[in-house]
Design a protein around this nucleic acid. Structure first.
Lengths: 346, 346
DNA sequence: GCCGCTAGCATGAACGTTAATGAGAGCAGT
DNA sequence: ACTGCTCTCATTAACGTTCATGCTAGCGGC
């Protein structure tokens, strides 16, 4: 049995001839216990190797000191950075992180929420899979605060922390378009999420500002790869396949924006294989500033996402809402910075 | 209060005029309860939105159905893949994952173990930070099974699942070395972990097999970047800085092995800036097969790590040990595959 | 000497669940 | 009618902690 010899409050108390309650208060640092016994208790607790049982504590206190983190895919560098930041901030605040991966599947998301309810986590940070947000209602009904990460589901009254993708893309496209740029394509992920919608909106805003005719603009959706219900919308190969089919010497954009830097990798290859050059024939603008972006040949102009700041802000917000549940809803969109490199400096 | 209106077993029982125990057994699917009441109970439980309290369950059963996952750095693609695999397998087996990030800091590791003890997790999957393994003894003493991931700390009697880096590197170096290759350098991480030791051992084994004189071989340690105690041993910039200082037209290796593909990025740039070419002047062999490796120019020969298989195997092993604690210790080293691309086909 | 106050600790209950034991009804066998 | 068995459920006691309340000794004030 795993817990056969686990040291409990009673064990410490019995050894000192005290009650369990006194030991509890002594270790918790509350008053109503003399300094002498407090020292005695801590010494004996340490000697016996006492470790408090968090489940017993949660049961009576109603708090778990655990935060649920619902992520679609840890292998995406943006989410990986988010995980790191969230875990770090939670750890600093004394919270543990229960990680739940949805793989962008609605079924997994539903099960994740169930798990969080069983656990009675103190709060949830979550990346929603699709635009239907009723999955999260169970948490709200249980009065468990939820902060949406990166993807926003409006109308649910949930806090949100994400990136201002629309402005970032809009500005970046305008700045990346030089005098010769007429035809602009956007290589997008085929997902019904707010991030994609925001990028497309930013794209259209840029077209307006640049005065690009709509027939010169194209939004291409890279077919999403699926393996057993789990989506993988970040494969360079898929972007390459699509770009390779559409781009020829006679028919190619002057500026190509990709929904993530992985897609840019595929685009680079497709462009190269057609005998075209970046940025001479096609300028390429990425999204995400993945670690390799600066090292590509030519180096990739891309948009750096403040993943660390977003994770930090989300945890801050969640902790604040845990402290005061009735505070007004907050929606934060962090600005993203354009990192200009060679791929757009034609 | 967060749990003010949480539906409990009693609530369901009272509504049906039953005892809490009967409801518990009915939902658990045990016998000693008639089919009629079982149906009644499940219907009422669903109607009221009953969700079992996992802490109460853990308290009495001694099992938590939670597995601790201790990782040094989620932003490393290998660990990210490991996280995905572990979470998926645990989820399939009905376990949840408590994620603890150590950032390769001994202090964080110690606190992580404390947290796992408080929680009373059923098992732990962990990447150790350094070679001293007494940090994990607390878990063993509490009879909590530990499976070491990727990095092995020998002599602790702990299960291990990792990659056979030594053989992989040895074979890859031999196969990557052509007739003109005399001088071979290895760009390593500056960490005291078994993985680094294994790669260096493989490197030396290859030198022996190739008959390369020891003065032609060089092991270079890339200084580890640290921010507030957390190490970041995967920065292309750091590898670039070191390689850029050492590589000149007159003094360069014929074959350069890097401890990870990020370092290869830095090496590519350093080589290029000296007016040298890959693989013409310097062949480059990476490690990890990061998503961008296939898309570099020239494409990077590298070693694909079976992260998914490792994660799966580790969870399998952990669950088996949870089931039978006294089974003999297992140590598995999965083979890694060489992916030959342009960077070594001179 | 009695009262009241405080510091320091003990006692009992509760959190929501599961395991062990008990109890009553129904039924067959004698 | 009595015994004994099975089926179904209730009752009680745990798990380890915290909170509310109770108790005792010690002390000062009149």
């Amino acid at each position: 049995m795993a817990r056969s010899q686990r040291v409990t409050l009673r064990d410490v108390a019995d050894r000192l001839g005290l009650s369990a309650n006194t030991v509890s208060r002594a270790l918790a640092g509350k008053d109503q216990v003399s300094e002498a016994t407090r020292a005695l208790v801590s010494a004996e607790a340490k000697r016996l190797g006492y470790v408090p049982n968090s489940h017993a504590r949660s049961l009576v206190s109603g708090r778990t000191m655990v935060v649920g983190l619902v992520i679609t895919n840890p292998s995406n560098p943006f989410y990986a950075a988010l995980i790191s930041a969230v875990e770090r901030e939670c750890r600093a605040a004394g919270y543990s992180v229960l990680l739940l991966v949805t793989e962008d599947s609605a079924e997994n998301e539903e099960r994740a929420v169930q798990q969080l309810l069983r656990f009675g986590v103190d709060g949830v940070l979550g990346v929603a899979t699709e635009l239907r947000g009723d999955v999260w209602d169970g948490l709200s009904e249980a009065n468990i605060p939820v902060v949406q990460l990166s993807r926003d589901i409006p109308g649910r009254g949930l806090d949100f922390v994400g990136i201002d993708a629309e402005s970032a893309i809009a500005d970046a496209v305008v700045r990346s378009a030089g005098p010769g740029v007429r035809r602009i394509w956007l290589l997008e992920e085929d997902l019904r999420i707010s991030t994609v919608a925001a990028r497309i909106a930013g794209f259209r805003r840029a077209l307006d500002r640049l005065g690009v005719a709509s027939e010169q603009a194209l939004v291409l959706k890279v077919p999403t790869h699926r393996t057993s219900g789990a989506t993988q919308p970040w494969r360079p190969d898929d972007a390459y396949a699509l770009a390779s089919n559409l781009i020829t010497r006679g028919n190619h954009p002057d500026l190509l924006i990709t929904a993530n830097d992985y897609f840019a990798l595929g685009a680079y290859r497709a462009i190269r294989e057609r005998g075209l050059t970046v940025p001479g024939d096609v300028r390429v603008l990425g999204y995400g500033d993945h670690p390799f972006a600066a090292y590509l040949q030519p180096s990739l102009t891309t948009i750096r996402l403040p993943a660390d700041e977003a994770g930090t802000a989300a945890v801050d917000l969640l902790l604040r809402r845990i402290a005061e549940p009735d505070r007004p809803r907050t929606s934060t969109r962090l600005p993203a910075e354009l990192i200009e490199r060679q791929s757009t400096t034609g």
